[in-house]
Design a protein around this nucleic acid. Structure first.
Length: 860
RNA sequence: GCGAGAGUGGCGGAAUUGGCAGACGCACUGGACUUAGGAUCCAGCGGGCAACCGUGGGGGUUCGACUCCCCCCUCUCGCACCA
């Protein structure tokens, strides 16, 4: 073979990848359209925020999705695989403030860049369905849905607090609060009450909970997290009359069995009665406490080790069962958002109440005694929260506390003191954001008419482009007069437009529906398209979205169902949550975190100091431990980049970056390439009809391995998403083919094997697979070629290997006929020389035979 | 703090239903080819001279445990205005 020919045959990813991308694009290979008779398959990956460049997390997520999309297409499904942009959000505003670029041009430039990058990866997207959520053609429909929700009372306004920087006069996101201070100026952040829009997700709490039990295709941990987040609990609401007043305080408790032990009352500092109840003597202290708590972080406030603090209001209420006077306290660990914002305190049987009572020297009464010991308030060192027997509880004494729960609930209901109540931890979804780069909330405030929805015909309320964004605070839209000042749609009087925008989670709660009909202009969705394509058969994205995004998307689907837009209850039939992408960090004592390319021979390229190896952490710009996918594609090609992401670990686990691992993948593709081209001569000479004499042992064995690999790869992709083991199996197949001594003697088996190999590779590394498919003289694209099927008969083995253990330790291996019965297997096992050595002179007590696997001889 | 996961050779990982621990790849070692090798091919590769010991640590269930149960340690993700 000439040297020149060899050069031509070298694997050159750059050339072939471009070639096949152009062909797919020209042929519109991945354009999806409704085909009534064909079974659809909707494969969706979580769409990206257009931050500027794609990162390895995207590459991984979308490589995983692309394998499944291409696999399903080869299996004959009508696959829809769309992509778009979650295009509203804070980073665009930050860029505007920092660099003076308009959020819109920043966002659209980023989209252009990232789209080019995604295209270079060779993902099988139907780009004709692309959408960007910042496009008025998208958010117009979001505004319409909001109006419908408003009509039905599912969107409403209420007071709620935000993080407020008194220096910048601006609202801060949680991530903009660092150690309780503003990220820009460090000023201590305060709570500020604002009127905000909420979605009534709590109306759907029960259904959202119930339906988690129908989501068979979701990972159990995600379902558990959602159930815990919804947090259904059954208990009672109980009224405690105020002393010397007609008014009552209502509490929610799951422990009505401990009601006789309630010795004081704890209110959230935000409780409407908090300041009202304060006596003149206590008012100053109460006010100071409220102000102090307002500055405390909400997560810390409720944590167990956080100092439990409170203040006495000076007022008392009455325990309705014991008639005891209970001092009313404010406590920092009581939240207004949960239950009623008031807690009956039972220090003997609740740890937080216990600590609080000890600190403020409040009364304690034991009402549940544990089996076999006796508690007394004087000697207790912690609350007793386990089951036990009721004491000090009047007519309920002697009952076990679990049955007392029911009895006391009955009693409260008959006496009209309280009632059974199901309570959810889930709170309504606050959607107002005091920001510019988001969907305007389509509402107008009129002095005469009140809250007036923008009429449908006036939608969309377009985000005005010419808005000045500066570091100094407030809501940018609120300052823009020609936006805010508007005539009331009802009465025509001068009115004021809502200047808040939506939480960006709203856009991502229904984009998967819009993909079915991205250009539909008569409503949010075209019902017939949605009915055909939805639900999403497989959704893939980061585990960090396990609770919020996925819960909101489920909620929105139910809302849109109840509004008649869709006919489904749940949006995502199957869910795959992928792990993150990690990499070693490196740090120079002088220059801080180093990019991998700034380290040469373990030294900082700027100063020559030895770089310290840090921990392996999630790839992040702040730690500089990032790899730019473009460099990777440039160096090795998209197929290698994809292969590495898929091979290095199973999708749900963390992926650790390794340059060596990438090289290994590149070498593997070269090996495939060489194998195919080295076999060309034999394949073109070989018989086409596959009439290899089956008597040839080598041919038969190669067939067996080939079909076994087809089975393994099919099952690994379809049932388990274990792409790493699927690829490992393909590697074994290559090793098996390469190991065949005289390939020229078995052209038909070789041909079957190599053609299967190329098709098995196609979902993972589509470019090289297409090139080899055509080089092997096959017509059309491998992506249209269909998925290979395995032949059960070809898998059969005449002889199988059985492991022989003595007392659980492997002592020998025997080969028996595949159909050998247990008795034959036992005798063969005992006849094995080494096994006999360990059994000799001992009494055989038992022999366990696991068919086709193992024999365990138990001796003494 | 609360909720949910993870931990296996020098490294990434495999072991699908309780049945050979370490598939496959990387790194490494030796050899072949070669002007050369950071290419390719072949062979070896958990520890220990061995008996044996080995799946984060400690207990338990079982003929048999990476796998199931209890306790502990470490790390990761989410916690409602980041997306």
């Amino acid at each position: 073979m000439s040297w020149r020919r060899r050069m031509e045959e070298r694997y050159n990813p750059k050339a072939i990848e471009k070639k096949w991308r152009d062909i797919w694009e020209k042929e519109e290979s991945f354009k999806a359209s409704v085909e009534a008779g064909k079974q659809k398959y909707y494969l969706l990956e979580m769409f990206p925020y257009p931050s500027g460049r794609i990162h390895m997390g995207h590459v991984r997520n979308y490589s995983i999705g692309d394998v499944v999309a291409r696999f399903k297409k080869m299996q004959g499904f009508n696959v829809i695989h769309p992509m778009g942009w979650d295009a509203f959000g804070m980073p665009a505003e930050n860029a505007a403030i920092k660099r003076g670029i308009h959020p819109s041009s920043w966002t659209y430039d980023n989209i252009d860049n990232m789209k080019a990058q995604l295209k270079k990866m060779g993902f099988s997207y139907d780009w004709s369905r692309e959408l960007a959520t910042c496009d008025p053609e998208y958010y117009k429909w979001e505004q319409l849905i909001f109006l419908k929700m408003f009509e039905k009372g599912l969107a409403y306004k209420k007071h709620s607090s935000v993080n407020w920087c008194p220096e910048c006069l601006t609202v801060l996101a949680n991530e903009q609060v660092e150690d309780g201070g503003c990220w820009r100026c460090g000023t201590i952040v305060e709570d500020k009450e604002l009127e905000q829009w909420f979605f009534k997700i709590t109306d759907y709490a029960q259904e959202l909970l119930d339906d988690t039990y129908k989501l068979q295709g979701w990972p159990e941990p995600v379902l558990i997290m959602q159930r815990n987040w919804i947090g259904r609990s059954i208990g009672c609401e109980i009224d405690f009359p105020l002393e010397n007043s007609e008014e009552k305080i209502r509490v929610f408790t799951t422990r009505q069995d401990t009601l006789f032990g309630a010795t004081f009352m704890s209110l959230a500092p935000e409780h409407p009665l908090a300041l009202k109840l304060a006596t003149d003597d206590c008012r100053a202290e109460v006010q100071a406490f409220i102000d102090k708590v307002r500055k405390q972080d909400k997560i810390n406030r409720t944590s167990e080790d956080f100092e439990k603090e409170g203040v006495f209001t000076g007022a008392y209420c009455i325990n309705p069962l014991t008639n005891l006077r209970m001092p009313i306290m404010l406590a920092n660990f009581v939240l207004m958002d949960y239950g009623t914002g008031a807690v009956m305190a039972v220090p003997t049987h609740d740890q937080r109440d216990f600590e609080f009572a000890r600190r403020y020297e409040l009364a304690m009464t034991v009402v549940i005694q544990p089996p076999g010991r006796e508690l007394s308030p004087e000697t207790m060192t912690e609350a007793y929260t386990e089951p036990g027997t009721m004491v000090n509880s009047g007519e309920f004494n002697g009952l076990d506390n679990e049955s007392a729960k029911d009895k006391i609930a009955d009693y409260l209901e008959t006496k009209g003191i309280g009632e059974r109540k199901v309570n959810f931890r889930l709170r309504d979804w606050g959607v107002s954001r005091q920001r510019y780069w988001g969907t305007p909330i389509p509402i107008i405030y009129c002095d005469a008419c009140g809250v007036v929805p923008v009429p449908e015909k006036d939608l969309p309320v377009v985000l005005p482009p010419d808005v000045e964004l500066t570091a100094e605070g407030g809501s940018p839209l609120a300052r823009k007069k020609d936006f805010v000042e508007v005539a009331c749609p009802a009465c025509g009087a001068p009115a004021r437009r809502e200047s808040d925008t939506f939480d960006t989670f709203v856009e991502s709660s229904w984009y998967f529906l819009r993909y079915a009909c991205p250009h539909f202009d008569r409503g949010p969705v075209d019902r017939s398209a949605v009915d055909y394509w939805l639900p999403v058969d497989q959704y893939i994205g980061g585990v960090e979205h396990a609770v919020m995004h996925l819960l909101y998307a489920r909620f929105y689907t139910k809302i849109l169902r109840d509004l008649g837009y869709v006919g489904i209850d749940e949006p995502f039939t199957n869910l795959l949550t992928q792990g993150m992408v990690c990499m070693e960090t490196q740090k120079c004592p002088e220059h801080g975190w180093l990019y991998p390319e700034e380290v040469e021979d373990g030294k900082c390229s700027k100063c020559g100091k030895v770089a310290e190896l840090g921990r392996i952490e999630k790839m992040s710009k702040s730690k500089n431990n990032v790899i730019d996918p473009d460099t990777l594609i440039e160096q090795y090609g998209a197929d290698t980049a994809r292969l590495f992401c898929l091979f290095a670990s199973p999708p749900e686990k963390a992926l650790e970056w390794s340059e060596k691992g990438v090289e290994g993948c590149f070498r593997f593709l070269n090996r495939v390439w060489r194998l195919a081209f080295d076999s060309l001569a034999i394949l073109s000479a070989g018989s086409e009809d596959g009439s290899e004499p089956e008597t040839q042992k080598v041919a038969k064995e190669l067939r067996r391995v080939t079909h076994q690999t087809i089975k393994k790869v099919s099952e690994d992709i379809d049932d388990r998403f274990h792409f790493n083991t699927a690829i490992a199996a393909i590697m074994e197949l290559i090793n098996a083919i390469s190991g065949v001594e005289d390939k020229g003697k078995i052209p038909a088996a070789l041909r079957e094997s190599i053609l299967a190999l190329v098709r098995l590779l196609a979902p993972f590394v589509p470019h090289i697979a297409e090139e080899l498919w055509s080089a092997l003289g096959q017509d059309g694209c491998v992506s249209e070629a269909g998925w290979p099927e395995w032949n059960e008969a070809a898998l059969a083995q005449e002889q199988i290997l059985i492991v022989v253990q003595v007392n659980g330790k492997v002592r020998g291996k025997i080969t028996v006929a595949a159909e050998a019965d247990a008795e034959t297997v036992k005798q063969t096992a005992l006849a094995d020389g080494n096994v006999a050595r360990f059994v000799e002179g001992k009494e055989i007590r038992k022999m366990v035979v696991v068919p086709k696997r193992l024999v365990n001889i138990v001796v003494k």
